[in-house]
């Protein structure tokens, strides 16, 4: 039971980030590498704020805002300075490394074990037995659901439609007399805000911030998005956001299963990229849609 619960917990935490990657990769067709650093950015902001006495719940919003700011930077570099998409992500990712360290006052590792977090506070401690055991997963589920519903609602607004249009058909957006650049910037801000939110939740659940947690976030996000949208979209009508969340949980379950079978963590990255490549090849019809 604890294994399944662990997988769901991990999956839900990263699902927030994967929803962001879904916006950039699937909707905007923008491979945004900045999430590798906006994920730890969110964690750094949350850990530092919590230590400064900011209510843990509030840190989630601040982390989101910080991530959105970083995403805006990626967008501006790409749109205004005309740097290629992949490169603008790399630029922001690299710059954020220093910024993350300066946020935590040059500490690569910031424990918050003894602090109150959204998962550990007086209210949670006061809960009765069956509820307290599942408190973590319930809180995560609530956060993910709220984010998902908000995102679904947003996609139905005028701005949301434009966002989707930019990925599908840029000319259409221009012909509607809308600036496709600002729509892209908005999408990147949203995506990186979600990645930072994910990082903030991660560090509160794990009890510490560590500079190295961001490595490979984008690969994990892409794999989850692709599993979600390619596999679950085959099972009848299902919202893309739901599919992405499920995809992340499935991805985490695969990793957990591989480890239970005795997979050496040494090979983890290799397996992840192979897995990723296979799904990409299988889903090559993606290209037809985009081109």
């Amino acid at each position: 039971m604890s294994i399944i619960l662990g997988v769901i917990n991990e999956g839900l935490i990263y699902a927030l980030m994967a929803l962001g990657v879904y916006i950039t990769y699937s909707i905007l067709d923008f491979p945004d590498l900045s999430v590798d650093s906006t994920f730890p950015l969110g964690a750094a902001v949350a850990a530092t704020m919590i230590l400064a006495g900011v209510p843990p719940f509030l840190t989630l919003f601040i982390a989101f805002a910080a991530g959105a700011l970083a995403g805006t930077a990626t967008g501006l570099i790409h749109v205004k300075l005309k740097v290629r998409d992949l490169l603008s992500g790399i630029i922001v990712m690299t710059a954020l490394y220093s910024i993350n360290l300066s946020i935590t006052d040059n500490k690569a590792n910031l424990p918050i074990f003894s602090q109150e977090t959204i998962f550990e506070n007086a209210f949670i401690d006061g809960l009765a037995k069956p509820l307290s055991e599942y408190s973590t997963v319930i809180i995560l589920l609530l956060i993910v659901l709220v984010v998902k519903i908000l995102l679904d609602l947003y996609m139905k607004t005028r701005s949301g439609y434009l966002l989707r249009a930019v990925g599908d058909n840029e000319t259409l957006v221009t012909s509607l007399a809308k600036d496709k650049g600002s729509v892209k910037i908005l999408g990147l801000a949203l995506a990186n805000g979600l990645a930072a939110l994910s990082g903030a939740v991660y560090c509160q659940q794990k009890g510490f911030f560590e500079i190295s947690i961001g490595t490979g976030t984008i690969v994990m996000g892409l794999a989850s998005v692709i599993i979600g949208t390619k596999v679950f979209s085959r099972f009848g009508k299902i919202k893309a956001t739901t599919a992405v969340i499920l995809g992340t949980i499935v991805y985490k379950a695969c990793i957990s299963a591989a480890m239970a079978m005795g997979l050496k963590t040494l090979y983890m990255k290799l397996i992840t990229s192979l897995f990723f490549l296979i799904i990409l090849v299988v889903s090559e019809n993606r290209k037809k849609k985009v081109r």
């Binding site: 662990g6 991990e10 794990k206 560590e210 500079i211 190295s212 947690i213 961001g214 490595t215 490979g216 976030t217 994990m220 990793i255 957990s256 480890m259 239970a260 963590t265 983890m268």
Partner: peptide, 11 residues
């Protein structure tokens, strides 16, 4: 890798 380290522990 910090994220892998967490995975190892839960494993």
């Amino acid at each position: 890798d910090g994220a892998v380290s967490s995975q190892i522990a839960s494993g």
